[in-house]
Amino acid sequence: MSGNGNAAATAEENSPKMRVIRVGTRKSQLARIQTDSVVATLKASYPGLQFEIIAMSTTGDKILDTALSKIGEKSLFTKELEHALEKNEVDLVVHSLKDLPTVLPPGFTIGAICKRENPHDAVVFHPKFVGKTLETLPEKSVVGTSSLRRAAQLQRKFPHLEFRSIRGNLNTRLRKLDEQQEFSAIILATAGLQRMGWHNRVGQILHPEECMYAVGQGALGVEVRAKDQDILDLVGVLHDPETLLRCIAERAFLRHLEGGCSVPVAVHTAMKDGQLYLTGGVWSLDGSDSIQETMQATIHVPAQHEDGPEDDPQLVGITARNIPRGPQLAAQNLGISLANLLLSKGAKNILDVARQLNDAH
């Protein structure tokens, strides 16, 4: 009898209710805020589980004197976190989706994509230029951005401005803007500013005609071990179906173009009346040469937790077992079709030249 009692006690200790789920994140304040929001949602869904947040620095956090596009290494903000995932030191990792490459290392998958916040870019102005827009900034004003995508589009749109690289986390960039006289304004992701509670610093939100956004911008991705079915089931509740389908289309477009950090590629997606609209573009580094096109596809946005595919093969690095396969494939095909259209119009040449120029500098 006593033996059975011990077995029952052991089973209770090993039951999922007692389990601590370890969540990996970057150390920056924004990353911690984003991770806290994901953990809060998981806690609400699984009140019996405990969650421990483990923060670590990544290569991208450490190399702050070089433009991201020049470092010449993929997975700048993800490699150390993936290493911890691989060694079973954490069970899942919360990322900004735009930091996750469209091809993940073997053994990993994006197990959830959370509801997207505003994906557009924002302009934050130096205190002396508050009330201005990019259009009304004085001639030769210097605007800071760490992104080739932003610089290429904005140089084309605002030729009277000069664009220079600015690195560091959000706090560091804002301090550089406010305390030094080098920059009249800087460009940042609206979602990051909003998550930090800095709505009052948003001086201008850039519309798609001015600057399309990065693939996955404004959404959070939760990376897990691809074979860890328990954790895949656990994080599945975080999937937002519309965000998922938009981001599958965007990531398929980028992957098929073979774009990345070192080339200016941008997108804009919208879901309306059962249609998914995808606009994508590529630019030369100075913005003088560009190709942009829009395509659409009829896609039914499923309700969360309709029964999805059981075999769960990944699409552009994403596993969404609780979302039907048909809409996911339709979104992926839309991204591939748009990429093929741009490639047929000469996108590869623009991107190759951009890559060579970026590598040469």
Rank of each mutant, 00 (worst) to 15 (best):
I299K: 05
D65E: 15
I231H: 02
V301T: 02
A226F: 10
H207G: 11
V263S: 08
A226E: 15
E162L: 13
T294C: 00
T136C: 07
E242T: 07
V143S: 03
Q34Y: 03
P324V: 08
R195K: 03
Q314R: 03
F51R: 02
E162D: 11
Q181M: 10
N169C: 05
A331P: 02
Q296V: 12
V38H: 04
E209M: 05
G346F: 06
L148S: 07
L338T: 09
A152F: 04
Q229I: 04
T78V: 10
K345Q: 05
K43W: 09
Q50C: 00
E82M: 02
H126W: 05
D312F: 07
D99N: 04
V93E: 00
P101F: 06
R246F: 06
I166V: 07
E135K: 05
D311N: 12
K157F: 10
W283V: 02
I166L: 11
Q204I: 01
G72M: 09
C261P: 01
V215W: 00
L170Y: 15
T58S: 10
T66G: 11
H120S: 12
D65G: 08
H300G: 13
I248M: 05
G107V: 10
H305P: 03
Q304R: 13
Q29L: 11
G48E: 12
A266L: 02
A189P: 03
N118E: 14
G197F: 07
E242V: 14
A55R: 11
R164I: 09
R355S: 15
L76S: 11
R167H: 07
L193I: 05
W198E: 12
I299A: 12
E89I: 13
Q296A: 01
G236E: 00
P159K: 10
L92G: 06
I71H: 08
D91M: 03
S146A: 09
A55F: 15
V222P: 00
G107L: 09
E162Q: 07
S344Y: 07
I186Q: 12
S45R: 11
A151T: 08
L170W: 01
H207P: 11
I323C: 11
F158L: 11
L100S: 07
Q292P: 07
E210W: 15
L254V: 11
L64H: 15
L341W: 08
E250H: 02
E80D: 14
N88H: 11
K345A: 13
I71F: 11
P105S: 10
G317S: 04
L193A: 00
S146F: 11
L154P: 01
I205P: 02
K27H: 10
T66Y: 06
L244G: 02
F253M: 14
Y46M: 13
V215M: 10
R175K: 12
F158Y: 13
S45D: 11
L351A: 03
G281L: 08
I21G: 00
A252L: 03
S146H: 05
L100I: 14
S37Y: 05
E293F: 07
D91N: 13
L342R: 01
M56H: 13
D311P: 09
T190D: 09
R225P: 14
Q314A: 04
W198F: 11
T136P: 05
G335S: 01
R164G: 10
D307H: 15
H199P: 15
P105F: 14
L97M: 09
H239A: 11
E86Q: 12
V142Y: 10
I248L: 11
M271D: 15
V123C: 07
D289R: 09
S141D: 08
C114T: 14
G280P: 01
Q217V: 02
P241R: 03
M196L: 12
S262M: 00
L245A: 14
S284E: 00
Q356I: 03
E310K: 08
P106L: 13
P127Y: 01
E117C: 13
L170K: 04
G236C: 15
P101V: 08
Q332L: 06
G346C: 15
Q29H: 10
M212L: 14
A354S: 05
A347H: 05
H207F: 08
G197V: 06
K176S: 10
A31C: 00
R246K: 06
S165T: 14
D233H: 13
I187Q: 04
E80Q: 09
S45I: 15
T243P: 06
N349G: 11
H268A: 13
E162T: 06
V316S: 08
Q155C: 13
A320F: 03
S45Q: 14
K128V: 06
E139M: 08
L285F: 13
T145S: 11
D273S: 04
T102I: 12
T66W: 08
G218W: 02
I318R: 07
V282S: 05
D230N: 11
P106N: 13
Q50V: 02
A249H: 00
I53H: 02
G335I: 02
N340C: 01
Y46V: 14
Q314E: 14
V202G: 09
A331L: 02
L64E: 00
D289L: 09
V38M: 07
H268G: 01
W283Q: 11
L342C: 05
K70Q: 08
R246Y: 05
S75F: 00
V23D: 00
G192N: 03
D307K: 15
V301A: 11
N340H: 02
R116Y: 04
T41W: 08
P313H: 06
T145E: 01
I21K: 01
A249L: 04
K132M: 14
G259L: 12
I231A: 15
S57L: 09
A44D: 09
T298Y: 10
A44C: 06
V224G: 05
Q153H: 06
H160N: 13
R201N: 07
L232W: 08
M196N: 09
Q332K: 15
G107A: 10
L104Q: 08
C211K: 00
H160Q: 13
V124R: 03
V38P: 00
I350E: 00
G216L: 02
V39H: 06
I71G: 09
A67D: 15
T41P: 07
L134E: 04
L137G: 03
S141F: 08
L64T: 13
L343E: 07
R26S: 01
T190A: 13
R32A: 08
D230G: 06
H120E: 14
F253K: 00
R116C: 07
I231N: 08
L206Y: 02
L193R: 02
A214C: 09
L154W: 06
D91E: 14
P119W: 11
N88K: 14
S262F: 00
E82W: 06
L76K: 14
E80R: 09
I21E: 00
F129K: 04
S147R: 05
L329R: 15
I336R: 15
R22W: 14
L76Q: 10
A44R: 13
V222H: 00
K140H: 08
